[in-house]
Amino acid sequence: MHRRQFLRQTATTASLLSAGMFPMQAIARPKTTSLTILHTNDVHSRIDPFPMDGSRNEGLGGVARRSKLIQQIRAQEPNVLLLDSGDIFQGTPYFNFFAGELEIKLMSEMGYDATTIGNHDFDAGIDGLLKQLPHATFPFVTCNYDFDHTVLREQTKPYQVFEKGGVKIGVLGVGIALKGLVPEKLYADTRYLDPVTQANQVADKLRYEEKCDYIICLSHLGYKYQNEQIDDIKFARSSRNIDLILGGHTHTFMPQPDIIPNTENKPVMINQVGWAGILLGRVDVSFEKNRKNRCVTCQNLIVR
């Protein structure tokens, strides 16, 4: 877990620390590129803020505010990726009435780069999901739902590669087992494949064939279960080549991200930001470009 530090404070703290404690290295700092990843999960058709009715979340969230915040961050950061981990649909009458059309249109307007598919995204059936895809200017990435025998054949992608400031980022997606969770008539002939096997294959491809520098998995598996069911923790532990897991499904408000060693004992970060668009998650990643086989600045950042 060396090369990473997980101060919950902002980046300022870190740069002060490294500049103050290692002035020489700070001056001789090699070229770095930064990437800002913004993410949501389980927004559940929460277009307007929660109504002011005395309930726990009253007045929180709202797409217009999130959009404004994203705009502000885009104005400050050159390389932004905006991602969602599924369950875009269901939860307010907007979905009952407009079948997810507005949710997808707004995500396109905000400039989402990719999403994965949550179990509630099947709530209008796969035909219902298909109907909304033309409103999306971003791909739906999933590598463990086999839609070959459904109307969604070739409508989703196993992964998407982005290039930001010279850095190549691979984004893949995994979804939860549908049997028992979603009525069969809604997901029809969708086949659920093992997320670990599929994701590892895709991540290998992203790392070695697509030459990605950083690999993000959008997961709708859920953060943590007491039983045997696959969750983000178990998934991270059995994964390889994935750097960051942006989770969903369990509506978990994580006070800080988890760091789990993968099969190669490399750290995988897991983050999830509650639900309903109450929060917007942000992960700032910096990359050092050099021709050496080890990172110089990384050495300065060991905190624990």
């Binding site: 980046a11 007045g59 915040l69 983050n271 109450i278 950042l301």
Partner: peptide
């Protein structure tokens, strides 16, 4: 020899979306 980007740092923060934090 490969041109390599090394993952140097990851920082995480979370924005709470309320009337106060974002004015629309």
């Amino acid at each position: 020899c490969a041109s390599v980007y090394h993952l140097a740092d990851e920082q995480v923060q979370t924005y709470r979306i309320t009337e106060k934090t974002v004015d629309v």
